[in-house]
Computed example of a mutant assay.
Amino acid sequence: MGPLSNIFELKDGIKTKRISSYDRTGGNDDKIVIKAGETAEIANISGAGIIKHIWITISTPDNFIRRNAIIRMYWDGEENPSVESPLGDFFGQGWGEEYNFASLPLAAAPAAGKALNSYFPMPFGDGARITIENQSEHNIDSFYYYVDYEEHPSIPDTAGRFHAWWNRELTEVHPEDGEAEWGLVGEVGKNKSDKDNYLFADIEGKGHFVGVNYYVDSPGPMWYGEGDDMFLVDGEDWPGSLHGTGTEDFFNSSWCPNEEYIHPYFGYAKVPDKLGWMGRTHCYRFLLEDPIYFDKSLRASIEHGHNNNLTLDISTVSYWYQTEPHKPFPELPGKDQRQNMPEINFMDVHRWRHEWRKAMGNGKKLWGNEIKEKKDK
């Protein structure tokens, strides 16, 4: 059943509505201002319906507004948001950056990714609210938006509510093993648990998981993606019902890719142009044809390197539908905790080489690929 398969069907009792930032005076000042530190309610809908599309574009002196502004969504009068995420990360842009991104449910469109779009259907039975909190020190001088939705007489009891959760972690390596990916600098250990994995979903209730935006910043040139994805359904023990074979495999690619690739369901919206895989990579996968179903709970995680042996800055937004009430999200990290890690550059690499030369005895013609064990013989 494709998106056009029932477009010709005529329906009764449904009304199409829109809330937008249009100029109520009839002029062309079609925006709102969200002052620094304030929260704006951009939609407050009563009754039952389905939000079908959201479009947002903004202008502000703050060039990090995509991390400094928070989008939240509430269904059916709930107190705890079902959606809570930095604005850019939710729509498919990591690290507070602007860049084009295209997928079936989410997109960041021209000019230069400034137009943020969601096509996730978001049903509600007794009201819906969407807010934007400006945690920046600057006003959002121009905030333009559409919220397109349908009014329905009622919503079926089988309609799960849309959820999205942002998480971030600066991952740690095992001190005894070091960063030993591919066995390059030491023996690679074995992982028979998900306890040290990066967690991207921790859900209670009945529902189905439909996707994730995965933003990884690697401080070194080694391939970041030997980590397996692991989904533990309804409280089951490791290895669980769905156990993967590597990060790129979960994102439907292969062999350590480092190239942009855009598919409606999966791809690489951003890749680094540095040494190896050093820098920022945005992977995404939407399980729209193959959602992961759960009746009681879902714990979803991924290794940060095989056996969790890499230090990486990972941020994710996960998307799913479930029954309410949902398990409240952990407290969103403050603005200072959402800043990017410093960029590793060529000077840092040269400092590493300087320390390596000292470890190799400061030979006068060391090239850089010598192995210490061979040098000592």
Rank of each mutant, 00 (worst) to 15 (best):
S5C: 11
S5I: 05
K11P: 01
K17V: 00
S20I: 00
S20R: 09
S21G: 08
Y22T: 03
Y22R: 15
I32F: 01
I34Y: 02
K35H: 11
A40F: 04
A40R: 05
A40S: 12
I42H: 03
A43M: 11
A43D: 09
A43V: 10
N44P: 01
N44L: 08
A48N: 10
W55N: 03
I56N: 05
P61K: 11
P61L: 01
F64H: 11
I65M: 15
R66M: 10
I70G: 05
R72A: 11
R72M: 04
W75P: 00
P81N: 04
V83N: 07
E84V: 01
E84T: 05
G88L: 04
F91V: 08
G92A: 10
E97S: 03
F101N: 06
A107C: 03
A107Y: 07
A108P: 04
P110F: 06
A111I: 08
A115K: 07
N117I: 07
F120C: 00
A128L: 14
I132F: 09
N134C: 04
N139T: 06
Y144H: 14
Y146C: 05
V147H: 07
D148W: 03
H152I: 03
P153D: 12
R161L: 04
L170A: 12
V173Y: 11
G186M: 09
E187W: 13
V188Y: 07
V188E: 15
K190W: 09
D194W: 11
D196C: 11
Y198N: 03
F200H: 02
F200L: 03
A201M: 07
G205Q: 04
F209C: 04
G211H: 10
Y214H: 13
V216H: 11
V216D: 01
P219S: 09
W223M: 08
Y224H: 12
E226D: 15
E226C: 15
G227H: 07
W238Q: 05
T245D: 13
E248R: 06
E248H: 10
F251P: 02
C256T: 11
Y261G: 05
Y265M: 10
G267M: 00
Y268E: 10
D273Q: 14
K274D: 12
T281P: 03
T281W: 07
R285L: 02
E289D: 15
P291N: 09
Y293W: 12
D295Q: 15
L298I: 02
S301L: 00
N309I: 04
L310F: 06
S315E: 10
S318G: 10
T323Q: 11
K335N: 03
K335D: 00
N340K: 06
P342E: 08
I344M: 14
I344Y: 07
D348H: 15
D348A: 14
R351T: 12
R351M: 14
R357E: 09
G361I: 12
D376M: 15
K377S: 13
